[in-house]
Design a binder for these strands. Sequence first.
DNA 1: AGTTATTTTTGAACATCGTTCAAAAAAGTA
DNA 2: TACTTTTTTGAACGATGTTCAAAAATAACT
Lengths: 211, 211
Amino acid sequence: MTTNREAKRAQLRQRLIEAAEIELREKGLKGLKARDVTARAGCALGALYNVVDDLDMLILEVNLRTLIQMGEALNAAVSPKGSRPSSGQDASPDAVMQALAATYTDFAIENHNKWLALFEHRLPKGHEVPDSYKQAHSALIEVIVPPLARLRPDLSTDELMLRARTTFAAVHGVVHLSLQAQFVGVPIANLKAEVKALVEAMTRGAALATP
Amino acid sequence: MTTNREAKRAQLRQRLIEAAEIELREKGLKGLKARDVTARAGCALGALYNVVDDLDMLILEVNLRTLIQMGEALNAAVSPKGSRPSSGQDASPDAVMQALAATYTDFAIENHNKWLALFEHRLPKGHEVPDSYKQAHSALIEVIVPPLARLRPDLSTDELMLRARTTFAAVHGVVHLSLQAQFVGVPIANLKAEVKALVEAMTRGAALATP
DNA sequence: AGTTATTTTTGAACATCGTTCAAAAAAGTA
DNA sequence: TACTTTTTTGAACGATGTTCAAAAATAACT
């Protein structure tokens, strides 16, 4: 049966990705070793290279998962299933932005190592970032566009996309430097309050640009 | 002569730091190899470990240099030697913040690899970040306090320091994601304009908090 | 100046990585 | 069952950070 072959192959692939995800979560990007991953997945060292080009590509696969999980968290914050009218897309732009920023902050705190790997991992030159990766990241950015559009009805779609990236990156920077304890960022105890203040200032400043 | 000994030792130390700085600038953090550094410094491989605990500590030394250089650039932007009244500390808070942010952006662009290493490098656990490091970074933050204090006279010194870190980190995040091309950040062509818009929004929003 | 003691420098050797690939094991085919 | 093809394996390789006994250099002493 030829389908059994590729099924087992896909199964091993999934096992390796999951093993890598656990190793990453527990030991961080620098602690992720090929031998540990294959041992956890219950296969030989070389098997990794039958399923994936590179260890870097396996990491990329894990990162893609993380991106998707983060996207789900952000979307859930904005399109709540139950009743949470304070953060739905029809709430005030500031409330939506606050909900998004708070969710991003929580995600980063709760998935520290996996979240860090998104930004620590660099592809060896020659390799290109796959489209699925860029796409998953764009999805994150797009949830910021609606509230931003209400604050800045004067901006074009392209300008809004650009500004959304900037807004995302600003919040990201505060969280990033804070969680990277070696650098003097915002103390974690103050992180959520400072992110809130930042978003408040940004939305107020944005609203002022178009009275 | 016993002073000759430690003088030569210090000389070798400087040579190694400078070699590491060049290697870092040319090849990035991941391309920095102990053998290349010692070859460039003209000493044996093992000599590195007579002068420094670790390769990580050598990198930390280079990073400290980079932090100091960045501090000098930021201070020069705010306390211009010649005549540039538009950005001195007595200029409008927004103008000062804009000058600082633009300087930071330029520094990051012009010293890409060295600047990236500041945030990519992680100490192996057990090692603590030296005080000189934290001090150099605090110095960067402190130049933001004066303009911020004029925007927010209601905040205490501690609150201002905290908000300064947040402001710095927000600008940093936009630059960081933008220069990290693998992620969909702001395109470099738009970077300076977006940083400007961000600072504008933040200062306007901050000013609004205390009319 | 010559001899010995101390300190410094050296680079071969080691441990740990990611990666490869010939051989073994497994699966498919007749 | 015997043969072919595919897959899996793990020993081996090259690269890298780190160590340390030996060599070289320097200091101290007579």
